[in-house]
């Protein structure tokens, strides 16, 4: 019975904290806290945002084609032998964009703005719940871990 209650409470906590994240995520429009664009399988249409993002840009199909030659020209290809090892960090970033272009050319990996705050809140809520539950269960046991009647 105790096991059942513990597991049920854990599932409840998990769902509640997940719900906090989702609710906050849905409410979120024009975030104020730190956030980034991460890839999502969902289809959205904020192309203007995509063009400006400097991290994980998911280019359109045409960008993919135009970026491909630049990948070899930046010279990180190991097999071409034309690469310059002394590339700048800027080059590395360009390469990163190119790799994203490579990945996203056909399946079109979309980006979605993710606000980190709800995730942190959900994490804190879940953690606090688990620790509280653990403490309550611990109090119900003696020093040698036997149940206190």
């Amino acid at each position: 019975m105790k096991k059942f209650v513990t597991i049920s409470l854990l599932i409840f906590l998990f769902l509640i904290s997940g719900n906090i994240a989702l609710a906050a995520e849905n409410d979120h429009s024009g975030h104020s806290g730190p956030s980034t664009d991460i890839q999502s399988g969902e289809h959205s249409s904020h192309d203007a945002t995509l063009q400006q993002s400097n991290d994980v840009i998911q280019p359109s199909h045409s960008e993919h084609q135009s970026n491909e030659p630049s990948q070899s020209s930046t010279g990180h290809g190991q097999s071409q032998g034309t690469s310059s090892p002394e590339h700048s960090s800027h080059d590395g970033q360009a390469q990163n964009q190119n790799s994203e272009a490579h990945d996203g050319g056909h399946g079109v990996k979309e980006v979605k703005e993710v606000n980190i705050k709800p995730w942190v809140y959900a994490f804190l809520a879940y953690t606090a719940g688990v620790l509280l539950l653990a403490l309550i269960l611990k109090k119900g046991r003696g020093k040698n871990n036997e149940l206190v009647s």
Partner: peptide, 8 residues
């Protein structure tokens, strides 16, 4: 043998 992209 083929080109590899960077992480950062």
């Amino acid at each position: 043998l083929l080109p590899m992209s960077h992480r950062v």
